[in-house]
Amino acid sequence: MCTIALAGLALTAVSTAASISGQQQQAKSQKAAYTHAAKVAETEAALRRQDRMREAERTLNKQMAAYGASGVTLDGTPMDVFSNTQAEYARAQYMDDFNTSNRVGSLEASSANTRANPGPALAQLGGTALDYAARNANRG
């Protein structure tokens, strides 16, 4: 009878160890996924910045060409328009940088908080051993 109980406990311990190993591997994979997502977000932000700078340059060039073709000098109002255009692109870039920074920070925090932690499986192993000891303590 005792041999069957010990075999059951050993089987439970092996099963729990396998579960712990699986949880650790899952945590490592999740951490790698968070780290990769943060790098992708930074790369995408850099590409958006380049695109936004090119678009701003094209828009300003079109505005200057339109003013030049119409014979308007670039004093006064046209310069205000250029300045406002640049400010709009700068504001959009600032918001993109801010949002990307928050996203990357969140992903990095998630990555740092994801540890190879055995968690509930280890508690189950301890509980199983304690349960076995308690059940058999009075059998003397």
Rank of each mutant, 00 (worst) to 15 (best):
V40T: 11
V14E: 06
G140V: 07
S15F: 10
K31A: 11
K28W: 05
S70D: 07
R52C: 12
E55Q: 15
L9E: 12
M53Y: 12
A87Q: 10
A133S: 09
V40G: 04
T77Q: 14
A92F: 00
G126A: 11
R135H: 06
E42I: 04
T100F: 03
L107V: 07
A13T: 10
Q50S: 13
A133V: 12
A116Y: 01
A65P: 02
Q30C: 01
Q30S: 13
Y132H: 09
T85A: 07
N102P: 00
G22R: 08
A38K: 06
M95F: 08
Q25D: 12
A121Q: 01
G68C: 04
G76R: 05
A134M: 08
G8V: 02
D75H: 04
S106K: 11
A33K: 13
A5V: 13
F98E: 14
E42Y: 03
A90V: 07
T43C: 04
R58K: 13
P78M: 00
R54G: 10
A65G: 08
V40M: 03
Y67N: 08
G127I: 02
A56G: 11
A66C: 01
V81W: 00
S83Q: 08
I20G: 00
E44P: 01
R49W: 04
M64Q: 12
A17K: 06
G8D: 15
G119H: 07
A18Q: 08
